[in-house]
């Protein structure tokens, strides 16, 4: 199979408007991935599916990843004039990387038996702009998995034929797989509650009778 750089070059030649980036992966297996901007996600995916050399006709896995806001600290050297002498001073600069939701597609080819090409799409933020193009029209196999990503992460796929909750019930509020999801406090009495469970469980215990105060 072609390397990701070659695929990227060909994609950029065919679809000049698409913004494509190759993301690094430092682990032992080192499968790198293609990050595509949300607007051209669908056309890029269509190219990958229909291209004669790649023919990625099999969308194996669709999954969401939640990246909340993160504070990044970096040290930068700033030139300052101290007492009339120019000096280099190190400053710690804090900037907040805004959070986003990410959807990852693992594409293989059944005909040519190669793969995977990992395709990633990112939403603008985690609150209100969580829209991404659905790839279900290209691969039926993404139908239930995109519904699952919608259900558990709250990514809204436009173009999906039947976007409903799939694992949680329809009336459920919130997205349980997000990192900041707080599980509802419905602990039952357990014989051995401890740690956080103990703290939560204690709220459900009957209040201890107060010692009678003698007048």
């Amino acid at each position: 199979m072609e390397t990701l750089e070659q695929i990227k070059a060909r994609l950029e030649a065919a679809l000049p408007s698409a913004k494509i980036e190759v993301l690094a992966n430092e682990c032992a297996a080192g499968e790198r991935s293609l990050l595509v901007d949300a607007a051209s996600g669908f056309t890029v995916a269509k190219f990958l599916r229909d291209d004669a050399q790649l023919k990625l006709d099999y969308c194996s896995n669709v999954t969401g990843v939640d990246w909340p806001d993160k504070e990044l600290t970096e040290k930068i050297k700033v030139k300052q004039v101290v007492d009339g002498v120019e000096k280099e001073v190190e400053e710690v600069k804090k900037n907040i990387r805004p959070g986003y939701l990410e959807v990852v597609y693992h594409l293989y080819s059944m005909g040519l038996k190669h793969g995977p090409v990992v395709l990633r799409l990112r939403t603008e933020n985690r609150a209100d702009k969580t829209h991404l193009p659905s790839l279900t029209p290209l691969w039926r196999g993404a139908e239930f998995q995109e519904r699952e990503v919608y259900d558990l992460y709250g990514v809204i796929f436009y173009g999906h034929p039947d976007l409903r909750r799939i694992l949680m019930w329809d009336e459920f509020v919130g997205f349980p797989m997000r990192r900041d999801y707080i599980a509802p406090d419905d602990f039952e009495y357990e014989p051995t509650p401890h740690d956080e469970v103990l703290v939560e469980a204690k709220k459900h215990y009957p209040a201890e009778p107060k010692a009678e105060v003698k007048p």
């Binding site: 992966n25 430092e26 682990c27 032992a28 297996a29 080192g30 499968e31 991935s33 194996s60 896995n61 693992h106 995977p116 990992v118």
Partner: peptide, 9 residues
């Protein structure tokens, strides 16, 4: 394990 991502099947 070191940071990174992997898909195994």
């Amino acid at each position: 394990p070191k940071a990174g991502e992997v898909y195994g099947r």
